[in-house]
């Protein structure tokens, strides 16, 4: 009986909460919470400053993807329609968001900052096909607000302040056109492995 009287302390808490502000919000279409700039959901492929498709088909994202959901078909080197310089191209690029774990590794390894993630809440699809991003869908997503992270920025953030300031920061600075078209040149550089302590 005494114990039941003590229940009033619990009743007080729920009573208190009756007058608190609502904590939930209607979902996404009329919500409108501002997402932080690093917020990441789906994917987009972007064009670089020259107006070319930034992807050079180097297959780095395909190799790093833990879920193995990215498929890149390299298109070989071709002169850019805008600058005329030869650069790598991708013939096809598909990304199956059904199995994506949103780890951002593909963004981090991209040497051309070609793949970015989106900053808007993901809209669920009605079929598997809707979540399968083809190259057209990825380039169409370019118009959607993108997340902060790009390859160069992520690498820059991690390399910042490191005692030995080797390639990565230098790599982040110049516009993509300089290193374009030489995907074969990238692998040997960062493959140094672990073991270096500051």
């Amino acid at each position: 009986m005494i114990g039941l009287l003590q229940a009033f302390s619990a009743l007080r808490i729920t009573g208190l909460n009756l007058f608190r502000a609502k904590n939930t919000e209607p979902l996404p279409w009329d919500g409108g919470r501002v997402r932080p700039e690093r917020y990441r959901t789906s994917f987009a492929l972007v064009h670089n400053s020259d107006g070319d498709e930034a992807c050079i088909g180097c297959k780095m994202c395909e190799k790093i993807c833990p879920s193995q959901i990215i498929t890149v078909v390299p298109g070989g080197r071709a002169p850019s329609p805008n600058t005329g310089k030869p650069r790598g191209t991708a013939k096809d690029f598909t990304l199956d968001v059904n199995a994506c774990i949103h780890c951002e590794l593909c963004v981090q390894v991209c040497p051309e900052d070609a793949i970015v993630m989106l900053r808007v809440p993901e809209v669920p699809g009605f079929s598997r096909e809707e979540l399968f991003l083809s190259m057209e869908k990825l380039y169409a997503n370019e118009k959607v607000p993108a997340s902060w992270g790009t390859g160069a920025l992520l690498i820059g953030m991690q390399a910042e302040g490191q005692p030995k300031p080797p390639p990565p920061p230098a790599k982040a600075a110049p516009p993509p056109a300089t290193t374009a078209g030489v995907p074969e040149a990238t692998p040997p550089a960062p493959a140094a492995g672990g073991g270096e302590t500051p």
Partner: peptide, 20 residues
């Protein structure tokens, strides 16, 4: 404290780290 946040080079490749 201030300072770097990563001791190794940022990951650019799947094989960036090899265990001894």
């Amino acid at each position: 404290p201030e300072g770097p946040i990563c001791a190794l080079k940022p990951v650019k490749l799947p094989g960036a780290y090899k265990g001894k």
